[in-house]
Every structure is written in structure tokens, then in C-alpha cells.
Design a binder for these strands. Structure first.
Lengths: 208, 208
DNA sequence: AAACTTTAAGCACGAACGTTCTGTTAAATC
DNA sequence: GATTTAACAGAACGTTCGTGCTTAAAGTTT
């Protein structure tokens, strides 16, 4: 869009580029994403595509931002529409696993792939991905805190600790499903999460 | 080594190449590992280096195999020297976290990085990495089974399920430490593992 | 010391990379 | 309807990629 909010032709092309770029990057990485290959895939010229972003790094930044929007739309927003506290915590886990299993991105969770790729490469991309992950963990954390204040969860456990554990179990499913073709991975993850939450819930029978 | 077991000059060069290649690959990925860059780093010619492996994929295969040897030496063997059952299970977790935290590879766990890179790219490398991960999970699994047969762990939990959970908690520490510079990540992981094992141990006070 | 094998360098290749510059076409504005 | 502007295409740049082919040096064996 332009500054005054108009939608122009270039925006559609740009979104088409980013959609394809996210798919490629989730499979082959943000570095493996090459401008020439992307242009060929979309049937446009390399220079025309390039001029939308100005540099490869700007393209990568745009792809990460676009992936954040997808993730927010697919996981965060649905969870925020549910009841705060324990139900929302359950929905965060469920929604994330579902997002990974449904292959919203063909290479599994975009941020798992990109995070592992850039976790040892200082720069803008790493900073962006780190911020995104921190935001996600903070959302877990705040939801745990809410559940504790509502008397639904044991207050002995640190919110950040439980956030870490839930994210760990979910992420591992993504990894095992992709690398090992392990069909049971998501079930294992759900089982692990259920066990942990029931151990901490004041009314365990209400954890689905 | 040659077929008859002699150690020749080329082997030292080859090992020097692989050592540097593992370090690079753990940070920049097996694809980001380029022959030209590797040769420049080591002060040798590109063609000389290349002739040791014959192709890039063969180099990548050799790097993965070399990393397996390092991992076996650093984590698996020490654990196999401890008492079978629960003590060994604890040592597998401790040893892995220590291996990640000590930065045996500068980019953290080699197999975490490479696994995430190739989990959506069919081919030899993916197959190799998948086999390595399966072996690792099976070692966890067998150790859990031993502990159960020795009456140290609750027999209600499936060995593969617990293996999945322990690996998940450990891997998440590697990820958080690298991407988020989270100094607490390893402690969180250890705490999570301890909690889970104590919940399943017949004598919880013996879980360190 | 000579013959032979192993090891590595030198050089060049075609392809793909990110990037820049110059046109051309289509839309928006006047 | 003329003019300006945004959206692309085409061709080429220099660089780096993986990969061969040829040749020199080093080590081993006779």
C-alpha cells in the first residue's frame, strides 16, 4: 500500500513474491532462497523482482515480516479469541501444533527453520527472529501467569519455566515430524503437554 | 587411513579439513559451507581440497560422519561408561546439555543445525541425519527401558514417549541459548528434566 | 638412485549468484 | 488526450560457486 492507503498493482506482485518466498525459505532456508530461482518460479524477471526490495537482505527481512503476519493470523489471533488463562494456554499449544502439522508452510514452522539457520549468524535477520521468538515465549508466559492468578495452575512453577517446557515439547514435534517422518510425533507432543499441564492444574480433569 | 591401515599424510590434511568444515557447518550450515571459503580458511587450494572428496555432497557426507564421531566421543561413550538404568539416563541428558553448552561445535549442536537445515530436503544428507537422530533417540529409549526393568522408573510411561520429552527439553536449551542468548536456558532445561524424572522415579530423592 | 604413487597446486570452465543500468509498458494524474 | 510516474523486462556486470584437466612436488618402494 501507499502512504495514503491505496492498494496499487505492485502490492499484489509483492505479496505474490512473499508468499512464494516464505514457502521456499521454510524448506530451503532464507539463504537458500535465491532471487533468480524465485523469479523463475514466479515467471517474472530477476530485475523486476529485485527492484521491489533493493537487496537480498531486504527481501529476507520482508519474508520474515510476512511470516510473522501469517503466524499471528494462524496461531496468535485464534488463541487470543479464547478465554484467558488455562483454556487459552491449551489453545496456544494446540494451535501451534496444528499450524505445524497442517503445513501452513511446506517446510514446517517457518521460525523453527529460520531460527536454526540464523541462530549463530549475528545480524538483522537473527535479531528479527530472536524478537519474534521472545514475543512468542512471552505470550506463553503471560498466559501461564493469568492461569495462575485465576487459580487454575500451581503457582510454584515459574511462568517462564513452563513456557520453556511447553515450547520445547511443541517444537520437538515439528522437528521429528519433518526429519524422521514420525507420524506419532504430534501425538507424543500433545501427550507430553497434557501430562505436564495436568500435573500443574488445580482441576486436572479439566485439561483436555 | 589406507586399506592396510597405514596413516598417510593425506589423512592429516583430511582431518584438518573436516575439523574446520564441522565448525563452519555448525554455524553457517552444510550448504553455507563452500569449498572455496573452506580452502581459503585453511590456506590450501580449492582443487587440492576438492580432490579429497570428489564432490560437494561427498564432502557434506564426510562432515556429517566426522560430526557423528565427535558426538559419540563427547556424549555417547561417556554415558555408556556409567551405570545402566537411571544413572545412565541422567548422564545422557547431562552429557548432551554439557556438549551443547561447552560449544564443542561453535554453532551449538551440529545435528540440531544440520537437521533443521535438511529436514525438508530429501536426499542422502537428510537420510544420514535422520538415522543419526533415530540412533540417539533409541539410545534414550533403551536406557529408559533398562531403568524400568531395574525398577527405577514408573513402567506406565512409554520409553519412546519419555525419550521424546527428554530430547525435546534438551534441544530447546540449545536453541534458546543460541538464538536468544538466554543464559538461563540450560538451567531451565535441567530443571524440566529433573522434574519429569522425579515424577517418574520410584525413589525421586535419588534423581540429582 | 630410479621408478612409481600419493598429494596437492594451477588454471580454466560454465553456471548461478546478487546487483546495476537502460528501456518499455501500463497506469495514474493533469 | 498529453504528461508524468510507477512497475516491470532485458541485458550485462563482476564475483563466487562446484567441478574438471593438467602438472609439479613429496613420499614410498624397489
Amino acid at each position: 500500500m501507499t502512504q495514503d492507503g491505496r492498494v496499487v498493482r505492485g502490492d499484489q506482485t509483492r505479496q505474490r513474491i512473499l508468499d512464494r518466498a516464505m514457502a521456499i525459505a521454510s524448506q530451503d532456508g532464507l539463504e537458500g532462497l535465491s532471487i533468480g530461482r524465485l523469479a523463475t518460479d514466479l515467471g517474472v524477471s530477476k530485475s523486476g523482482l529485485f527492484s521491489h526490495f533493493g537487496s537480498k537482505e531486504e527481501l529476507q527481512v520482508a519474508v520474515v515480516r510476512a511470516a510473522e503476519e501469517v503466524f499471528t493470523h494462524e496461531v496468535v489471533k485464534p488463541a487470543l479469541r479464547t478465554t484467558p488463562g488455562l483454556p487459552r494456554l491449551v489453545e496456544l499449544c494446540r494451535g501451534w501444533l496444528d499450524y505445524s502439522e497442517r503445513r501452513v508452510f511446506p517446510g514446517g514452522c517457518f521460525f523453527y527453520a529460520a531460527g536454526a539457520e540464523f541462530d549463530a549468524r549475528p545480524g538483522r535477520i537473527r535479531d528479527l527472529l530472536a524478537r519474534a521468538r521472545r514475543d512468542w515465549l512471552r505470550l506463553y508466559e503471560q498466559t501461564v501467569r493469568d492461569a495462575q492468578q485465576l487459580g487454575q495452575l500451581d503457582t510454584d512453577v515459574e511462568p517462564a519455566q513452563l513456557a520453556f517446557e511447553l515450547d520445547a515439547l511443541a517444537t520437538a514435534a515439528n522437528s521429528a515430524a519433518l526429519l524422521l517422518d514420525d507420524a506419532l510425533a504430534y501425538q507424543r507432543s500433545r501427550a507430553g503437554i497434557r501430562t505436564r499441564l495436568r500435573a500443574l492444574a488445580t482441576r486436572p480433569e479439566e485439561v483436555p
